[in-house]
Design a protein around this nucleic acid. Structure first.
Lengths: 350, 350
DNA sequence: CAGACTACGGAGAGCGCTCTCCACCCCCGT
DNA sequence: ACGGGGGTGGAGAGCGCTCTCCGTAGTCTG
């Protein structure tokens, strides 16, 4: 009942540390945050007291006054199948691409003491959830990996003046920061390589044509091929999945049996194409040369291993995180974009 | 300078809503949290005021008094390669298995207003980070997906009396809750299927033998084979990756060229094995029947599609989350374990 | 040596919320 | 008519932290 009695289950507070160290709360706070010069000796005493008490600063209390959560939302956004919300998350998270994004984000944030909260925004309530999460100050900003061209979230975030950065340019113009790849340059890399190899009947499997990245890869590929003297490139649209790649390859083969080179707009679809080419007894790369895009894990687990356009996803994710932290620091900052350069990774398939 | 002037950039607080509604802070709080009966009319007035002000409760302030963060840590734990910390994260997150875990966790939490914070604990500082994150009250508990047999994190979590639940039984006994699969039953499913198909020269590619799941799958497989009259089962140890599966299959083929059935302890290794079998011109399933484990995405993108032992990972992840929330609710709760049943998914490879 | 300035510790006011008390009102029984 | 009790709103005390403001001591300048 004495005032000094404190339940042993209650974690130590700044006050406790201050008492043990024989200084004031403010001083302990200064030592912890390094905000101002504190005498060497006192610093040591305080640190000893921290160790002794096992003190850990309470994040909620700190956030309350600093108005910083120290977390950001990592949002995977897209259109879920109504009635099967989990399927969207499952699909996204099993895409090796997302794994690389997460890894890049984590790698960058880990040194800044910021932590990502995983969120899925595939339905309207889920989007509301993201918005209110940010408005509550539970996260200082949002990193958005959007899969859907008509995603309303970027606009809503901008309207609410919440710091946010996109992975990839939005389909419709929104004044928001993003990182992206020079997709056209990447596609050109693929085209040049195919032509250099001597391919003359080249086709491409595109991604869903409502997403800008797919469009750009297609445009870049066509332009480059045209410049090489090939004005016509057969195309088959896929959906960035292995299965859709198979279907697209089947179509291509049916309509253009003499194909000797294929550019698939991502590795997953290239993997599917490979299966179909095997089935049709086309040797890769001898009969048909195949170039993928992304340089994700399937590129390596395929046989032959995929020649592919490398997207520096981890770097892009890190860049996206950096951009977001900038926006969090300085709320007025106007939107920026950072474009990364792809590179060709030559392996066995072309 | 009048007291009513409030910067327009400052988000509205409970106080503001109360003023607009003409009631007290406490009443607004009660309406929002539904903690006590509030007069119908007043409820409506308050809700109108909330809409009008665009109020969103400040999470930090709430956490400060409720001592609940409303978030949990989703920790991927293992041993990183020193000097290349990011590689670990990259590997883990691109494993389709992890994607399913994340998706299951998210699916469960989404309805409870709890959010997962993604963390990697591959190095000592990273482990410290996880621990202090929890001790700071930034998260109410931890979900641990451990890949490493000697992972010290579970013990440290228990010692610090922090709520935590593991995915899979820890290698060394620790008084902690976990969900797991009946791996032995799963392996038996594979063995029975292979024998039923008429295989007589059956081998297995195991996971790393220091992790319990690998041991159990091996033991279960051997026992079942023995019961079928096959006392000897050649084994090759892999590392749960596609590459390691290739190497293991090569070894198996070199030492036992007459093999006609293989059980791989996960789909990724089965995928690798498939590549090697193709290379050696063994038809699957005609010459060699192959059964995987997990039923993850590679099982479907392989050709032939993999017959595999399905692990209900999403359900397990949801169960893990539920267990954790129970522990958060009731700190004294003693450890529980929940074991899930596998099932056989018959496709084309066996 | 006065005056001014620098360096550094302490006091105390909040940050926005929840929750315990307390006050009040109205309805009931006697 | 009056006391008791259930239902409901308000007041106010913190939760643990940061940060501004102030005080004191030591240092420098002319």
């Amino acid at each position: 009942m004495t005032p000094m009695s404190r339940s042993p289950t209650t974690p130590p507070t700044l006050e406790d540390v201050a008492r043990v160290a024989g200084v004031s709360r403010a001083t302990v706070s200064r030592v912890i945050n390094g905000t101002r010069n504190v005498d060497r000796k006192i610093q040591e005493v305080v640190r000893a007291a921290i160790d002794k008490t096992g003190y850990a600063p309470n994040r909620a209390a700190r956030s309350l006054v600093t108005k910083r959560a120290g977390t950001i939302a990592l949002v995977v956004s897209g259109a879920g199948d109504p009635g099967d919300e989990d399927a969207f998350a499952a699909r996204m998270f099993s895409d090796p691409f997302f794994g690389r994004v997460a890894s890049g984000v984590l790698g960058f944030l880990r040194t800044r003491g910021v932590h990502p909260v995983l969120m899925v925004a595939d339905t309207e309530p889920a989007r509301e959830d993201v918005l209110s999460f940010l408005r509550q100050g539970s996260a200082d900003g949002a990193l958005l990996v959007s899969t859907h061209a008509e995603d309303p979230l970027p606009t809503r975030l901008v309207d609410a003046e919440l710091p946010a950065v996109l992975f990839a340019r939005p389909a419709r113009p929104v004044p928001i920061s993003y990182v992206d790849l020079d997709h056209q340059a990447g596609a050109k890399l693929a085209a040049d390589h195919l032509v250099r190899r001597g391919c003359t009947q080249v086709a491409t499997i595109t991604g869903p044509l409502d997403v800008p990245a797919s469009q750009d890869r297609l445009t870049g590929f066509r332009d480059a091929m045209a410049r090489h003297g090939f004005p016509y490139v057969p195309i088959a649209e896929g959906g960035f999945t292995s299965i859709s790649g198979e279907a697209a390859m089947e179509r291509l083969l049916a309509e253009h049996p003499d194909i000797d080179g294929v550019f698939a707009a991502n590795d997953l679809m290239a993997q599917g194409a490979l299966l179909v080419l095997h089935k049709h007894r086309r040797r890769v790369p001898e009969d048909v040369a195949l170039v993928g895009f992304d340089d994700s894990s399937p590129a390596l687990s395929c046989r032959p291993r995929l020649t592919t356009v490398r997207q520096p996803v981890e770097d892009m994710a890190a860049g996206m995180s950096r951009l977001l932290l900038d926006h969090v620091e300085e709320p007025g900052l106007r939107p920026k974009s950072v474009i990364f350069e792809p590179s060709l990774v030559v392996r066995d398939s072309a």
